[in-house]
Design a protein around this nucleic acid. Structure first.
Lengths: 147, 147
DNA sequence: GACAATCATTAGCTTAGCTAACGAAATAAA
DNA sequence: TTTATTTCGTTAGCTAAGCTAATGATTGTC
C-alpha cells in the first residue's frame, strides 16, 4: 500500500458517502430504502436464500437482516418457507409484488445517478463506465458469495 | 439517458452501499463514523463554516448537522464562535484535537479500502484510479459548493 | 414599531446497524 | 439413549443518523 492507494481510497470513500446521500432523495417515492433495495435485489436474483446467507451477502449481522426481512414480509414483498431438510433454516423468496417493486424502485433510485452519468463528458463517462464493473467487485470482500 | 447509463448507475449504487459497509467495520476503533468523518473533514479543510453551509456541503438538513456538531463539540473536536456581524450564525472550526483525530480516523478508515486498492491487478488499479477523481466530483450535486 | 425572513435548535419520529441473550433444531459425544 | 454442543433465527435494547414540524433569537423591511 502506498500514498496513491490511500488517495484513491479516500476519494472512493467520499464519493460513496455522497452518492448515497443523493439517491436517498428519491426514497420517499419508492418506499424502498437503500438497504431494502439491496437485500430485495439479492433475494430476487439470488433465488430462495436463508437469513444467514443473506446476512453474509449483505455484509451485516443476522439480526439486522432478520428485522429487515420481517418488514419486507409485512409489506408482502417476500415470503418465507421452512426448509424441510433442516427445519432451523427458513428460505426467503420474493413475491411477484416484491419482484415488481424491486425493478420499479431500483429504476427510480438509479435514475438519479443515471441522469448524472448521462451528463458526463464522453471521456468521463467512459472512465466511469470502465471503473463501474471493477468497483462493483471491488466493493465486496474477497470471500463474498457473489464475487 | 440510456440503458447503459442505468447499468453504470446501478453498479455505482451497489458499490457505494457495499464500500461503506466494509469501512464501517473499523469505526469502533476510531470512534468516528462516516458522517462525522465527512463533516469533520469539511470543517477542517473548509475553514470556519456555518451550520447552514455545512448542511449544504453535506447534503443533509440543518437539524442533522446541528446535532452532529453538538456531539463533535461535546467531544472537543470542534468549537463554535458567534459571528459578530450576524449574531444568528455560528462559525464552526476544528480544534487541534479534532484536526488530529480526523487525520488518524480517516487514515484507519481509508486504509481498509486502500488495502483492496493495493490488491488489484495493475490494470484494474489503473482503471479505478482514473475513475476515482471523476467519481468524487460526480458524487456531488452540480451546484455543490465544493465542486 | 410591527412584520417577515433567516439561522439554529429542540422535540419526536424512522431506519438501520450492533451485541447479548434465548429458544428450537440438528449434531456429536457419553 | 440421554446429554452436551453447535447452529439458525429471533427478540430486546442500544446507538447513529437521517427527516419534518415547531420555536427562539436575530436581522431586515415596510
Amino acid at each position: 500500500m502506498n500514498a496513491t492507494d490511500r488517495q484513491i481510497a479516500d476519494r472512493l470513500h467520499s464519493a460513496a458517502i455522497h452518492l448515497l446521500r443523493q439517491v436517498r432523495t428519491v426514497d420517499s417515492k419508492s418506499g424502498l430504502t437503500a438497504s431494502r433495495l439491496s437485500a430485495l435485489s439479492v433475494i430476487v436474483f439470488g433465488g430462495p436464500i436463508s437469513i444467514s446467507e443473506l446476512a453474509e451477502a449483505e455484509q451485516v449481522r443476522p439480526p439486522s437482516i432478520s428485522r429487515l426481512v420481517k418488514e419486507l414480509e409485512w409489506e408482502g414483498l417476500v415470503s418465507r418457507q421452512r426448509d424441510s431438510q433442516d427445519r432451523r433454516v427458513t428460505r426467503i423468496r420474493a413475491t411477484s409484488k416484491g419482484r415488481r417493486l424491486l425493478l420499479e424502485g431500483r429504476e427510480r433510485r438509479v435514475a438519479k445517478l443515471a441522469e448524472r452519468v448521462a451528463g458526463l463528458s464522453p471521456e468521463e463517462r467512459e472512465r466511469v463506465a470502465k471503473a463501474a464493473a471493477t468497483l462493483e467487485r471491488f466493493s465486496l470482500p474477497a470471500d463474498h458469495p457473489l464475487s
